[in-house]
Computed example of a mutant assay.
Amino acid sequence: MQNPDAYDWYISPADRFNYETQFTRNNSDDVEITLQQMENIYNTSRISLEDFQYIWNLVNIRGNQAINKEQFVVFLHVLNSKRRGKPFPTGLTLSMKESFLKEDSKPSDRMYVRPSTSTRDVASFENKDIAGLEASIQELDREMTQSRALRDETEKRIAELKIVKAELADLAEFKRKHLAAIKADNEALLESEKVAVGGRDLDETSLLLLIDRLKEQRRVLEIKKSTAQAMLTDSQLELTRAG
């Protein structure tokens, strides 16, 4: 067991989002959750029933049939800390007890963990010495640097994708025009076949040669048409992915 003032009550924004999502998933009214509704959580918790009941009693200081979202968030924080090998706290901090005991407490009144995803739990630092606070400041500086780097990288990637999307759009337009030109050539060839055969008195040999030549020209145009159509389809797929 660990003194509540020495226990690490800090809940990261990512963990808080995960815990609140589980709260919504496991109950129907999004206001309170009962111990029975947490059966699935127990089945996957890999802790004993005795430990699970201890955490429930820890946060359920009124002894009610259900706990609210903030109590549930602390419940999962203690549970996951236990799974990572950390000892249980002997109780809650005074600020947490006061918050849980308030019938109509507002999020801004809860000092033990802030609902904002952009701030840390300042109360979790209140018992640290100067060296501990300086270490926490350095950790925050590292997180800020990483966040800025991630933001810059994301903005750079978005700019690159916009350029690629514009280039693919231009390529797709070129291929549409190219395909239209091939279709026009094909139609002109068909028309020339009619004119060449219909307006001339050819012997059998000449007629067969003309037909073979026109067939070859038509075959070449069909190949170009198929190739252009395939290229256009590929460009459209690339444009869709880039978008």
Rank of each mutant, 00 (worst) to 15 (best):
Met111Val: 05
Asp8Gly: 04
Asn27Met: 00
Glu204Cys: 06
Ser28Phe: 13
Trp56Val: 03
Asp30Ala: 12
Asp185Trp: 03
Ile33Leu: 07
Ile41Trp: 02
Ile158Leu: 10
Glu143Met: 11
Glu167Gln: 15
Lys82Cys: 05
Ile137Ser: 09
Leu161Ala: 10
Leu237Ser: 11
Asp234Leu: 10
Lys224Asp: 11
Thr240Arg: 15
Ile67Tyr: 00
Glu155Cys: 03
Gln2Asp: 09
Glu238Pro: 00
Ala181Thr: 09
Glu173Ala: 14
Ala6Lys: 13
Glu187Asp: 14
Gln236Thr: 06
Ala159Gln: 09
Pro107Ile: 07
Glu238Gly: 14
Leu168Ile: 07
Lys86Pro: 07
Asn64Leu: 08
Leu208Gln: 15
Lys82Phe: 15
Gln36Cys: 03
Leu221Asn: 06
Asp203Glu: 08
Val220His: 12
Arg218Cys: 01
Gly199Tyr: 11
Leu202Met: 12
Met38Val: 03
Thr227Ser: 11
Asn18Gly: 07
Leu189Tyr: 01
Glu20Asp: 08
Thr119Ala: 10
Ala135Gly: 07
Asp141Phe: 09
Arg25Cys: 00
Glu216Lys: 13
Val59Arg: 04
Tyr54Asp: 04
Glu187Ala: 15
Val195Thr: 14
Glu126Leu: 12
Lys86Val: 06
Ile211His: 08
Asp8Ala: 13
Gln2Pro: 02
Lys183Met: 07
Phe88Gly: 07
Ser136Ile: 05
Arg219Val: 00
Glu39Asn: 09
Glu143Lys: 13
Ser108Glu: 15
Asp234Met: 09
Glu191Ser: 14
Ile137Glu: 05
Asp121Met: 00
Ile11Leu: 02
Arg46Ala: 07
Arg142Lys: 15
Ile55His: 01
Leu221Pro: 01
Lys106Tyr: 05
Ala6Cys: 08
Gln22Met: 11
Ile47Ala: 05
Ala180Met: 11
Phe23Ala: 03
Thr240Glu: 15
Asn64Glu: 09
Lys225Asn: 07
Ser136His: 10
Asn80Pro: 05
Ile33Pro: 02
Ile211Asn: 10
Tyr54Pro: 00
Leu101Cys: 06
Glu98Val: 04
Leu210Trp: 04
Thr227Phe: 03
Ser12Gln: 10
Glu222Val: 10
Asp121Thr: 06
Met111Thr: 02
Met144Arg: 14
Lys86His: 11
Gln53Glu: 13
